[in-house]
Design a protein around this nucleic acid. Sequence first.
DNA 1: ACGTGAGATGTTTACGTGAACATTTCTGGA
DNA 2: TCCAGAAATGTTCACGTAAACATCTCACGT
Lengths: 343, 343
Amino acid sequence: MAARGGTRQRSGPSMADVAALAGVSSQTVSRVSMGLDNVRPATRDKVLAAMEQLGYAPNSAARALRYGTFGTIGMIAHRLARTGESRTVEAVVEAARVEGYTVTLVDLESPTSDDMTAAVARLGHQAIDGLVIVRAETAGPETLSLPPGLPVVVSDSRFVGHHPAVGADQTAGARSAVEHLLGLGHRTVHHVSGPEGSGPAQMRIDAWRAALEAAGREVPAVVRGDWSAASGYEAGLRLARDPGVTAVFCANDETATGLLHALHEAGRSVPEDISVVGFDDIYLAEQLWPPLTTVAQDFREIGRRLVDLLLQQVRDDEVLTDVHQVVPTRLVVRQSTSTPRSG
Amino acid sequence: MAARGGTRQRSGPSMADVAALAGVSSQTVSRVSMGLDNVRPATRDKVLAAMEQLGYAPNSAARALRYGTFGTIGMIAHRLARTGESRTVEAVVEAARVEGYTVTLVDLESPTSDDMTAAVARLGHQAIDGLVIVRAETAGPETLSLPPGLPVVVSDSRFVGHHPAVGADQTAGARSAVEHLLGLGHRTVHHVSGPEGSGPAQMRIDAWRAALEAAGREVPAVVRGDWSAASGYEAGLRLARDPGVTAVFCANDETATGLLHALHEAGRSVPEDISVVGFDDIYLAEQLWPPLTTVAQDFREIGRRLVDLLLQQVRDDEVLTDVHQVVPTRLVVRQSTSTPRSG
DNA sequence: ACGTGAGATGTTTACGTGAACATTTCTGGA
DNA sequence: TCCAGAAATGTTCACGTAAACATCTCACGT
């Protein structure tokens, strides 16, 4: 951490400086600064003029020290620009703005417990009132050590009972994807999954399998992916060679994008030869070719609830544990799915 | 701003509490906390034990007040999850982490000067040492009022002379796209642009036009887009009807994605009928169908330089103005461009 | 045994703000 | 004109940390 340089004082003019120039006490400057109304207009103008002249800006460190509050939420995320998670980040930042909070962001190099713990440690020393963990992936609740008393919310339902969690209804979402495909007449549905060890990935796998079993269908081997478009491409090359494959459910939209690429390249047409469903509904999903049928997550709602749940803890100074909110998903049917050719 | 609640004190145990429990002075706790070595091992252990027992964590507000530094950079961005900008955000966060800084993020509802000013005002009151403005779009240098003394960098070269700026070489990038297409034998190149009033959009338009004129080619009317995939789709529907169109340069990759969608839908094949070039090289560009030829920005380098330039100001306590760094772009040729059919 | 100095530890103070309380100034009524 | 009460303004202090300076303790050499 090279952050702290010498004993340099960045601070510009303080209230005392303004007060001296305006010929009033610093408390009066404080009152003007806070917009209280019990200051004579003439005095207020003097103070404002002095502020203007000196370029005064309140020192937020001192304010935070006084208040015990920063007006800032910490957020830990992984692969900011690479997955649908960026929409969660966006939604949290937006919801936080509405509440008058800003968001301090830390990205993870890898989603392991070690990296997560390091990130938490770094943020724990930062100026935050609470912490949002966007997706824990491989980190489990037991391996995560947090500063005591720091309010936390997690967008991952595996943390139920440990931290308040808000998440999309992975299970219902995956099920709706499988049932949609079966309903179109496909005999079974293949699955390109997320990486091993990832909680959300496992939930989607489980729901996919359960839906197939509930319908009495054969459960093909999982094709392992890692959320990336490249892994979807790899999977697509393999699946394209198997003429028995007519429907594929991908763990997220990036993977589905790569899969579409591979299928096009292999000359298999979508949806005539193979139907494809994604998960997330990223912004580009409807502009892919063909436009992607996918399980939409309501990121905005998730972000809003994460922030609400966090601020509730911050404001009441209590740490919740066993809250678990599940936000419904919605199947968006576009043109990447249809009745199988043979059907 | 509902951020400041009552006079609630979030703060957990302080150094004084730890000191009392350990039976030492708070200064000794401070020394242990800072990892200084002039503390007897036995004393250190006592203090560490007390810290552990109380769950002590240093109060960063007090630290910041003492040091005059937060170890935090503010960043203003627009459309986090929607454009290639998310890669800049990611890069800045990463570069900041390397330097031991965290990043506080504020998103803009709209890229107007008013919104920008409001965001700056909000961040100005936050705990930041400097400010990164990811892209000013429609806000101009003259309309932007910043807290005096706050170091700033901007990822937009129109701010040269006002604030230090780092940006991709828009001009060379756009030119390379046009020259690539002309080199393949296309008579001219159409352009789907960014929104009116956007600086970067205008630079790409100008460079596109200049490249065509330099080659003595006809300059078609600009098709106005707004960075979104939907606008690219609209543009694509129009351009697909014109049989004279053989090559299109899109202002960014999202727009290009929408354009590809429209062309597929209209039955025009890419690149046989129409060649398409994008700008940014988003993660999905190589997995689109066909994989997109595009002008790659070195986001990581841009992020690194933004942070370097900002921290240089923060550390030396000086405000730079006329620094302007241009990061080269690189044309990535994939399969969305080829010799025109007739050529 | 005693002084010396290095190392360990304690005490004081300032950072900038704003709450709580104290004091001054003004307004209006008798 | 003078007093009461309200409004405006000033003074003191605490928030938690760490630098600067002061004091204390101990090992070591003589």
